[in-house]
């Protein structure tokens, strides 16, 4: 129930931000639409810890800045590779087993790998991730387990 209420709140805030009008009619219309949408989505069974993972929000405030830092670092590395006249790449495929248990955790891990330039998740399943890395250093970064541990902590939530 709490999750339903928070879905409505998120939808409504999104409406207000995009509309930018604060007349009673439009605010009421926005609230009505938000409730209608959440009602339909609830019937579809999507208002669950996976569809609306609001319980992870406190943890995200710690994880996202770390991810942003990683993105900047690896983007800079890839930039140096691209601009280097020799184009020093060693494309590598690595497989490893992720330690997350929930779908949200696995998706977060897979997408974090893809988001950091230089590594792309090709296959992501509970048992194994297949990652393509631009350099061996990038591949070692992925299998090193730092991100894996952080996502596992993120997934457990607050």
């Amino acid at each position: 129930m709490l999750r339903t209420v928070s879905s409505v709140v998120v939808m409504f805030v999104y409406w207000v931000v995009l509309s930018g009008f604060f007349t009673p009619f439009l605010l009421a219309a926005g609230l009505a639409s938000s409730i209608a949408v959440v009602w339909i989505v609830r019937r579809m069974g999507l208002v669950d810890p996976e569809g609306h993972p609001i319980h992870l929000a406190p943890r995200a405030t710690l994880y996202w800045p770390w991810l942003a830092k990683e993105i900047v670092k690896s983007a800079w590395d890839v930039t140096k590779v691209i601009l280097s006249p020799r184009l020093p790449i060693q494309p590598t495929l690595v497989r490893f087993r992720p330690s997350q248990h929930t779908e949200v955790g696995l998706v977060t891990h897979a997408n974090s790998i893809t988001l950091t330039p230089g590594t792309i998740t090709i296959e992501a399943s509970r048992d194994e991730f297949l990652v393509h890395a631009l350099t061996t250093a990038g591949a070692e970064g992925v299998t090193g387990g730092d991100m894996d541990a952080r996502v596992a902590r993120f997934e457990r939530g607050a």
Binding site: V78, T114, T116, P117
Partner: peptide
């Protein structure tokens, strides 16, 4: 490898 460039 081009996908890595695009992700920058």
């Amino acid at each position: 490898t081009r996908m890595h460039a695009a992700s920058v």
